[in-house]
Design a protein around this nucleic acid. Structure first.
Lengths: 140, 140
DNA sequence: ATCCTAACTTGGACTTTGTCTAAGTCAACA
DNA sequence: TGTTGACTTAGACAAAGTCCAAGTTAGGAT
């Protein structure tokens, strides 16, 4: 994640302790935290950090393409630091657990020109849904 | 949509004027309204209908599988009455316009067993993203 | 046709999630 | 080490959604 901090500094970011802490919280390969969860973890390291700063920093990281916003449930957005590896998400109906997954092929290829309505289509987000092993076992 | 009302009555629903109005508002093939938009249109026909009832009714319709919830932007959920025809969505980065689209093939087929982590995967939602013709023209 | 009652609706308070602002603070350059 | 504009803060505000107690009503029972 120090890579990230260097990249950001190279883009003219002022490297504050708050931004460093947010970046550290997001570090990790399979994290999908809400803004409030990021704030809660950031507070453990830097008690006076404010919610506004966490929102600002997350928004900036998304704008820079370092972090992805994931909206799997229509509730709070989740922030996915794994932005440099193309991937999709698999979400459990029961407990909401989220896994990164890597489907084969290019999803854009499945959308014929006749179904594009003149749009310039540049991306596709896929949310697979199902029951995780634990929730499968719990359901009769 | 009278089909829908009959189906619902068959499931033991009490057929109130409020529920009828919500169902009428959702009628149509390519509608993707937020709860507030549904409420606004319902009020035109039944001025005293409350927001709580609109939320309740939408939630029930989703639970019955008659309407889909679509979360394309992490803001308000949208309600899609076209639940009986499998389809996906194409959303404009610029103006947020939403189109129903029909990709080829089964998206589940692209997810190998090794990428399922023991989940029982039963569905996939795809959001294609791009620029609509109007927004393409407006951008230099 | 009327009555009864569980189901439904209502308005408003409340919660969650996110945005904005004015005033204070500080990282980085000179 | 000083300066300054970018950054942070607390709290007010806004948007989206949920919950509740009290009132109303659809539709079966009489």
């Amino acid at each position: 994640m120090s890579d990230l901090l260097e990249r950001l500094r190279g883009r003219g970011w002022r490297l504050t302790s708050q931004r460093r802490v947010v970046a550290e919280v997001l570090d990790g390969e399979h994290v999908h935290l809400t803004a409030d969860e990021v704030h809660a973890r950031a507070v453990e390291r830097l008690p006076e950090i404010s919610r506004a700063t966490v929102y600002n920093t997350l928004g900036e990281l998304v704008g820079l393409g370092e972090v992805l916003e994931v909206a799997t449930d229509g509730r709070a957005k989740r922030y996915d630091p794994n932005a440099h590896h193309a991937h999709q998400h698999l979400v459990c109906y029961g407990c909401g657990a989220i896994r990164d997954v890597h489907p084969q092929g290019d999803p854009l290829a499945a959308l014929p020109a006749a179904e594009r309505f003149g749009f310039t289509v540049s991306g596709a987000e896929i949310t697979y849904r199902g029951l995780c092993p634990d929730c499968s076992a719990a359901t009769p």
